[in-house]
Design a protein around this nucleic acid. Structure first.
Length: 585
RNA sequence: GGGCGAGUAGCUCAGUGGAUUAGAGCAUUUGGCUACGAACCAAAAGGUCGGGGGUUCAAAUCCCUCCUCGCUCACCA
């Protein structure tokens, strides 16, 4: 369905051409939702921006536009306010007819994109042989939400997990494995990940302290990269065990990912370097092969290099990322590649994208975009750590949220003298706990750091997951109490929107499409959160003022449809964020 | 020192095409359950949008400058 906003934009553009001639056709109609409901639903600031070029009074221009508008079916006659704003107020009949139109549609009238372009979302990316920790939280949650939103819009999304499964640390690990746990190399499942993590730490200590061990580790890297069979077996063992543990988290969070680690691009790295050389971009500097960047300088003001081959001949992540760009464009046919990593990598990606463009690997027709996000902070305003000062494991963090949700729920059940089964309690606690963590993350503007606070995210009040989940449960309560099957509601009766709460709720429901389209380009999921929070508030106001079950027809059916559409909008919106709903809580 | 980002109510944060009186939530104070779940709603109070300049009829938003904080600055990713 064409959104109201787009229809208005088209109408204003047409009116502009009718009033001032065809040369105005490309002029942006500057239509946007009003920031204050008393100015109506939408406004156009067009007349003000035309005052100078047309050398006319903006109010007169506004009047000419209004005179040429053909929107009687949608809006009341637009009014001119202040210096020349055009304010639009939707007609309630029109709003009702739109609701009626989307009511039978599973997608709630939201369009798919015309061509299913391939989009890659690169997110999560933990490191093999390490546990997932709080540092992976945001990439995983934000990346998944972005992927879900683009999938819903109809893009062909490839979700890639660019795991750290290659590099110098493996020499160290394999060397230590041989030394300390030789049986792990021959016996399946001889280690679990807990051992693997402590193994990593011990290996690191050996590596830092013992020169001889360091040398062995380096040789092990060479053997691995050369494809020595027992080294590869050890490497694979490490990867498999890590992968299993990652999967526990992904299952818990309901996240689907295709693993394609750094090692995947290994065969292409040497070619990338020679390609850069052929293009004349390569320079040797302090022993390393580099491409020098435009507009990036170091402390002394000299140009900064992107190192693609280290002094020891090895490749690094810049090389891998260049190879990945090439592969993703040539083989995967991606037209948009989205990297969800922390903002600390902004320079790295800027450099890689610049070199890829210079080298002709990255054509104009493909968009690469770094989607940065800020740090997760503790209440002290510093990077989130445990009380003992170590990094918080992701599993522990999620379990804590679920446990707190469970305690809250049990306290409330006791207060209200409600009895529920242990299965119900566990299920509600899990959904509430996980959705609270996800929603807290997604509802903040991702570019800034955010403060992690269990009490706030699990609060039943305010812009939190529990508040939204409750707003979903309330319409379901109406359905149960009234013994009404929402899917069998009469769709023939005109929807009546007499009360201001009804109208406000209805208009808000219809805005989801605009929001989704906006997020599709800005990749800022917090816009969806804000939308859903406002929807929930409007529903609660409606619920307070407009009794549904005791209303007379045709108002009763109208209100049932409103309640159902609200619930389905919340459910759909939350699903785009990777959050489930509950029928009761 | 360079680059990037941030600084908006006591706290957590919205505000991405400059525009009509700067928003929300939490916390605080007050009112509302003999009506579909009060896990709710209503109302009050709370801000020189870090400081200073500039552009504009109009700036939290654009430009300049300064201050504070964070991230980052060649062989880790």
């Amino acid at each position: 369905m064409t959104s109201i906003l787009e229809q208005l934009k088209d109408s204003v553009s047409n009116a502009l051409v009718a009033a001032f001639g065809a040369e105005m056709a490309d002029k942006d109609p500057l239509v946007a939702p009003t920031n204050n409901p008393k100015f109506g639903d939408y406004q156009s600031n067009l007349a003000l921006s035309l005052a100078k070029p047309l050398k006319q009074n903006p109010r007169a221009i506004a009047q000419s536009i209004i005179d040429n508008l053909e929107i009687d079916d949608m809006c009341e006659t637009p009014t001119i306010a202040g210096p020349g704003f055009i304010n639009f107020m939707l007609k309630s009949d029109y709003v009702g007819s739109l609701l009626q139109k989307i009511q039978p549609d599973e997608r709630l009238g939201i369009e798919r994109v015309e061509s299913a372009d391939k989009v890659i979302v690169d997110f999560s990316s933990p490191n093999i042989a390490k546990e997932m920790h709080v540092g992976h939280l945001r990439s995983t949650i934000i990346g998944d939400a972005i992927a879900r939103i683009l999938e819903f819009r109809g893009y062909d999304v490839l979700r890639l997990n660019h795991v750290g499964d290659w590099g110098t640390q493996f020499g160290m690990l394999i060397a230590y494995l041989r030394e300390a746990y030789p049986e792990a190399l021959t016996t399946a499942d001889a280690l679990d990940i807990g051992d693997l993590v402590s193994l990593y730490k011990k290996a690191k200590v050996r590596f830092d302290e013992d020169e001889e061990f360091k040398q062995t580790a380096r040789e092990e890297v060479v053997k691995l990269q050369a494809g020595a069979e027992d080294s590869r077996r050890a490497w694979k063992l490490l990867c498999d065990q890590s992968r299993r543990e990652f999967q526990v988290i992904y299952d818990l969070l309901d996240i689907k990912l295709e693993e394609r680690g750094e090692s995947f691009y290994n065969p292409f790295l040497a070619d990338i370097v020679s390609e850069l050389d052929e293009k004349g971009l390569l320079e040797k500097s302090e022993g390393a092969m580099c491409v020098f960047l435009d507009s990036f300088t170091n402390k002394e003001g000299d140009p900064l290099p992107l190192i693609v081959q280290k002094t020891d001949g090895g490749f690094n992540y810049a090389t891998t990322d260049l190879a990945a760009i090439k592969y993703r464009i040539k083989e995967d046919k991606a037209t948009r590649i989205i990297y969800v990593t922390d903002s600390g990598q902004a320079n790295h990606f800027a450099g890689v994208f610049q070199v890829a463009k210079k080298a002709g690997i990255l054509p104009e027709s493909v968009e690469t975009v770094h989607v940065p996000f800020g740090l997760v902070l503790g209440k002290d305003g510093k990077r989130l750590k445990t009380r003992s000062g170590v990094t918080v494991k992701l599993k522990d963090l999620l379990d804590e949220a679920i446990n707190r949700a469970k305690n809250d729920l049990e306290t409330r059940l006791k207060d209200e003298e409600r009895k529920e089964t242990p299965e119900f309690i566990d299920r509600v606690a899990q959904v509430v706990g996980l959705s609270a963590v996800k929603y807290a993350d997604l509802s903040h503007n991702r570019t800034s750091d955010y403060t992690f606070d269990y009490d706030k995210m699990l609060d039943l009040k305010g812009n939190t997951a529990p508040y939204l989940l409750y707003a979903y449960v309330r319409p379901q309560g109406i359905s149960r109490k009234g013994n009404i099957d929402f899917s069998k509601l009469d769709n023939k009766t005109n929807i009546v929107l007499a009360e201001k709460e009804e109208l406000a709720l209805a208009k808000h429901i219809l805005q989801l499409e605009e929001i989704i389209k906006e997020v599709e380009s800005t990749l800022l999921p917090n816009r969806i959160c804000l939308y859903l929070f406002e929807l929930s508030q409007k529903f609660n106001q409606f619920f307070e003022e407009c009794n549904v079950l005791n209303a007379e027809e045709p108002q009763k059916t109208s209100r049932l449809i409103l309640a159902d559409l609200t619930a389905r909008t919340i459910k759909l919106g939350l699903s785009l964020l990777g959050i489930e709903v509950l029928e009761r809580m």
